[in-house]
Design a protein around this nucleic acid. Structure first.
Lengths: 238, 238
DNA sequence: TCTGCCAACTTGTTATAACAAGTGAGCTTA
DNA sequence: TAAGCTCACTTGTTATAACAAGTTGGCAGA
């Protein structure tokens, strides 16, 4: 066996949770029951449970047992996770505008598929944008953004693409107390989405260029529905 | 001993990381070395290391060792994580305003201290706000918010408290294409913060009330600096 | 010198064992 | 009946032990 026993067991339990065999708030088998069911030691059974707990799918209470993490509807609010680079620029007092280059259906690249948890080359939607910095010396293209959307998010983006604000290819920007604030009007998809737990929704990538067209920053944001509402992880490097 | 050995050991290691005794990318003592240093079994030494790994402070490589998670500057953007409830309301087309009730230094409650990773009853800053919904029938208090801030964030909030927009006890709200959008002017703390890895920064709590003053929603958001930029987890329930 | 193997060291997995500590049902006792 | 205790069950902590598997440096041999 290449896969460890505790992984097999926790994956089996995770599957049972996902298909509803164990529902929200249900008690999972005790360590002793797992030992007998899978003929493993307590260490292994414990490790399997620990995997689920560390991933937030279960909570353990001493003396009581291990329970599926109680959850209500998992809603995914669509506005904030989309605006990392834009917010950063706005905060630095940089005026900018966008040009939407493409919104197309493409096969998922290997790394994107891995991050979204879907099969390689399955269909994702890619939104490409050009970010222009509007300086005194005229507009300069400083960024290229590529957003890969999974199935769950794509329909909302498609609908949004027909909105007037997006058709104008620009983001309303206004000045407030000396701080330029992006209002994200074209990002406000005004809705919630019920999505599977742990499901990655979007890979958001950008490359920022200096004024002499040298790349100075790569970044990526993966938005993921977790047991609460959603989590973001942003990695940026030179 | 009330505190488990593996907790003591991982806390000691965490402290050594935080004071720079082990720097970013350094190799931590091996399990065998920890066994000898602290006179514990390998299970305990392993558990101590696992604590650090699960918190993102260290990464283990089989055959090589355990290393402090390499990190660049970890910057914490201050605007987005503060506006969950407010954004939700704005998206639903509800006009609202705030009243700041208090900004005070208080001892951390047990659960808050646990979430912030600080000692119980150590000092945190609590901001209390009353959220008013402005309906046709007049203003109704619908929410009570309590934000507990750790040491890292508190100074910025203190400075912010003197800003004119906050002194007016309201958030600028404006109408855009039929959607009321909160501009978060008083939340834009316009700065970055370098914070320790894995450090929880803020516990943001709110309770929403229906018009007949019945509580209908509790929520909490913990913002935490992780090895990328930051992560948010929001839990809401009835 | 270069190649290849091996030994030492590392973390990962798994088993057996014992005690600690929290929970809850049920029984005993007043 | 009601209070309190006990016991069975639960997870938490810790020890000893062995093997698996990945890494690295050194040594032997070509």
């Amino acid at each position: 066996m290449s896969t460890p026993l505790h992984i097999s067991i926790s994956e089996k339990l995770r599957h049972q949770i996902e298909v509803g065999e164990y529902k929200s708030g249900d008690r999972l088998p005790s360590e002793h029951q797992l030992m007998e069911t899978f003929s493993v030691s307590r260490i292994t059974a414990r490790q399997a449970v620990a995997n689920l707990v560390s991933q937030g799918l279960a909570i353990a209470y001493r003396g009581k047992g291990v329970f599926v993490t109680p959850q209500k509807k998992v809603t995914y609010s669509l506005s904030s996770p989309l605006v990392f680079l834009e917010q950063d620029m706005a905060r630095q007092g940089v005026a900018f505008s966008f040009e939407n280059l493409a919104f197309e259906s493409v096969p998922a690249a290997t790394d994107v598929a891995a991050e979204l948890g879907i099969a390689e080359k399955s269909e994702v939607y890619r939104q490409k944008k050009l970010l222009r910095m509007d300086g005194a010396a005229g507009a300069v293209d400083i960024s290229y953004l590529s957003t890969a959307l999974g199935e769950a998010l794509a329909p909302l983006f498609k609908r949004q693409m027909t909105f007037p604000t997006l058709a104008q290819n620009g983001i309303p920007v206004e000045r407030l107390d000396g701080v330029i604030e992006c209002t994200h009007a074209d990002y406000d998809l005004s809705g919630y989405l019920e999505v599977p737990l742990g499901h990655a929704l979007m890979v958001y990538r950008y490359t920022a260029y200096s004024r002499d067209q040298q790349p100075v920053l790569h970044g990526s944001t993966i938005s993921r529905a977790d047991r609460f509402c959603y989590s973001l992880s942003t990695r940026s490097g030179s």
